[in-house]
Nucleic acid binder design. Sequence first.
DNA 1: CGCGGAGTTGATGATCTTCAAACATGGTGG
DNA 2: CCACCATGTTTGAAGATCATCAACTCCGCG
Lengths: 222, 222
Amino acid sequence: MLVRINRTNRRLVDGHLAALGAERVFCSEFNYRGGAEIFGEGEGAEFVYQIISGVVRTHKLLPDGRRQIKAFHLAGDMFGLENGTTHRFTAEAIVGTEVRIAGRRSLLEVTTHRGTEAANLIALINQNLQHAESHMLLLGRKTALERVAAFLLEMDERLAHPDVMILPMTRRDIADYLGLTIETISRALSTLRGEQILRFIGQTQREVVLLDRGRLATFDAQ
Amino acid sequence: MLVRINRTNRRLVDGHLAALGAERVFCSEFNYRGGAEIFGEGEGAEFVYQIISGVVRTHKLLPDGRRQIKAFHLAGDMFGLENGTTHRFTAEAIVGTEVRIAGRRSLLEVTTHRGTEAANLIALINQNLQHAESHMLLLGRKTALERVAAFLLEMDERLAHPDVMILPMTRRDIADYLGLTIETISRALSTLRGEQILRFIGQTQREVVLLDRGRLATFDAQ
DNA sequence: CGCGGAGTTGATGATCTTCAAACATGGTGG
DNA sequence: CCACCATGTTTGAAGATCATCAACTCCGCG
């Protein structure tokens, strides 16, 4: 998986990318060999890409090597557009691939200085996208215990780390969120309780105290 | 899960929704009881919602009742914003919930008549979101055979139903896309071949002929 | 009090993974 | 030219994880 970039030419092109960023977006073209990395997770998101020909895969990795591919991108598809300044995925060419590249900043700024409404809207949809993407990794590659740990950490985070976390949803809701069954949820919670990572308040089993958030995080992958 | 909507009042409010659609978006407020359906999958997407207080879940259902919850929405969260005219999810209040509502058309048209670039950008991100959402259902609730059938149908669709479908990715790529192992992919393909639904051309096992797309679709759920 | 909904726990079972072996292909170098 | 090796794929056997089935508790409520 060596990175081998063959720059071919730089010229203004039209197409979907141009339609997005309008005429002032400068587009150039690149070629990647099969197996080449186009950008890596965590790298700065300088460019947005559109495939002229070839196939690209975008994926996330867990530290132990488990991989979740988010999508395969074919000719005409765009990828690499992020809300923030870093890529949330790694993109690799599967076969020899030609891409068209536009600067991200010019593209997003087009909308920004046209008014904050559009920018806010894009940020909002992008948040949803980001959440869906990380949930795909959870559903595709995490174990039951990892999923439950991730769920508890997500809720704790979103509820601003309360002393007592009151879960508004049933075990069935949690199960259907995490792609498991209610019994598996219950067993995972019992395991975490046995590990002294959490305890329940009252009889309802919906009020949770996280006793050790750090150790809980080690139960989640990454 | 009866639908019990208690309309409380209608008045102009400020907040994130207003920030999105600017001042001219008319916002009203509604109350839902726990268990109430706010909108259903497939219904027209007339409104966008922001939670004032309470909790909402959004989910997709398979015909046999398997459910995948996409997200839990808490106070401050927005949901129900779709690219097309219909909702891709069902939204239900988990507990008593107050929401702020804005008309979708006014909100999206704000960006549209400000320039097509922003609208194109939003459409693009929304496509990614839509794909991620349906993939979450696949990863959370579909069996191995259903996933492979769905994958073949997706590729067939995106390659415009070719006579011979040339898969550019390895079995490992397919496995990591579908949240399975290469052996399971291989076994599922062999099963489908045994069912006379597909056959391989040549020795490479990457060139597939779909012999019965209709029957293949029955192997996928929904 | 009885009933239903929600949750836990145990026993069993199915699906999918892991481990292993075999085979084909394609490239490399003697 | 062919041995050789890495990569990719299929298939079988064994094993682990999670699902299913079932029993039980707890609670709220008419």
